[in-house]
Design a protein around this nucleic acid. Structure first.
Lengths: 246, 246
DNA sequence: AAGTGGTCTAGACCACTGA
DNA sequence: CAGTGGTCTAGACCACTTA
């Protein structure tokens, strides 16, 4: 006697909490509403704050909550769909201006990028920084790596600075014939500078979209775009008519 | 006097730790090698275990480490590229068998899926479970929701069970003309059952790939595939010849 | 200045793995 | 069984926002 549940699998407290709070979010809270603070929530559920925080972290990771230091925890709106489809196989900067050019410099790319560009590990390239804004919110920061070989009129850009220079590099890049591109998506954590741009803390989860632009059998440029994973759902409109989800 | 650094921005310890360990991983460790255990690492760096764990969590999120309870922490191999390209606009189950059918049942889909299928919130549909294995490792668990309206010969499947039934539903689905599909990728955390299938703990970060299959102006099926975010890099071969990365 | 979330500590115990 | 990572506690202090 006394053996109550022979198969009682002890579900972690934070996991159970996450479920409970998640359900409460659906039924008792409106988007934008602020939750009680962490100390009060922890007390209310009878757990340590660290445990409560583990549950909130999960919910934030899933895009259900938004936490801001000094402010509080609010109920997040549904993730916005952000189109990352290939879009008529265009060079960056050709379509509508969802991307905002920040500046450009010459720098040595990370080893992984140099490998894709097929440049020497210590060979400098153009690095164009761009920011993607959607619904008034920054959603992605991009670093576009362009080898000198891809932009013939290089000297023209060197004299410029800021957005003007960035646009000059893009314009030169667009002269090339674009054969195609391939793309990959993976999970990452925001580097310090990206985090700042995206209004998040360093280490925040991001979706890293790497695009390789191919021209005349070579890799003409590589784009590494980091999207806020908490607020974005990447959409690939492979076909037909897409509806605007609310 | 005494003011050493007027602008000293206090970088969090765990963030600094992450950098240090990350660099050590590159230089001093081989893939598969086991790290010292957490208590020893924490002592070595002079921090509490919780802080050390925060750094390890980040590295695991980035796919650099793999931690297994009861075993230890090992250096993870580079993420494997997993092709999720539309692949000749095919129905699920038509291409090569990267997917392994597990079983099928009829169940009420989640509200979000019902909305995409345009079925009533409480209307049951076929739910086919499949598992994607790559390089001997489970990389994704899929739930494929198929409304009864999409599979005419429904009664045939009802008598069957297990993989046989799953394949029967897929076969019937393939009778339809596929007009197109659209797809989205977002960050999620593994549900308990998916986690088991993927050999991870519940809540592990996953990339959720949602595909809507369109036929004759309707949504004929919806697939929700959860990929292990730690081990997978999703690739979209938009064009041309892809090289097999090691 | 008050209140919020973010970081950190030093412990404890549990669940799982493998010899 | 010993050793690992996973969970949890009860505190403390810090950085940031707002008023």
């Amino acid at each position: 006697m006394g053996t109550t549940q022979p198969e009682a699998v002890p579900e972690p407290k934070y996991w159970h909490l996450k479920t409970v709070i998640g359900e409460a979010l659906d039924s008792d809270f409106a988007v934008g509403e602020i939750l009680p603070n962490e100390r009060e929530l922890a007390a209310r559920f009878g757990v340590a704050r660290a445990t409560l925080r583990q549950a909130l972290e999960q919910l934030e990771l899933e895009g259900r909550l938004q936490r801001r230091r000094g402010v509080g925890t609010t109920v997040a709106p549904p993730r916005m769909g952000v189109d990352v489809s290939t879009a008529q196989h265009a060079w960056p900067g050709t379509g509508e201006d969802v991307w905002q050019s920040l500046d450009s410099a010459t720098d040595v790319p990370p080893a992984a990028v140099a490998r894709q560009l097929d440049t020497e590990p210590d060979e400098p390239v153009h690095v164009v920084r761009r920011l993607r804004v959607s619904q008034g919110q920054p959603v992605a920061a991009e670093l576009l790596y362009v080898p000198f070989g891809s932009v013939p009129g290089r000297s023209a850009a060197d004299a410029l600075t800021g957005p003007v220079r960035a646009r000059a590099v893009l314009r030169e890049l667009q002269q090339l014939a674009l054969d195609g591109q391939d793309r990959s998506v993976e999970l990452g954590s925001a580097r310090a500078d990206d985090a700042k741009e995206l209004d998040r803390l360093p280490g925040a989860p991001v979706l890293v979209v790497t695009t390789r632009y191919l021209s005349e059998g070579r890799t003409a440029a590589v784009s590494v775009a980091t999207y806020r994973a908490d607020t974005c759902r990447l959409t690939f409109g492979d076909s037909g008519d897409l509806v605007m989800a609310s």
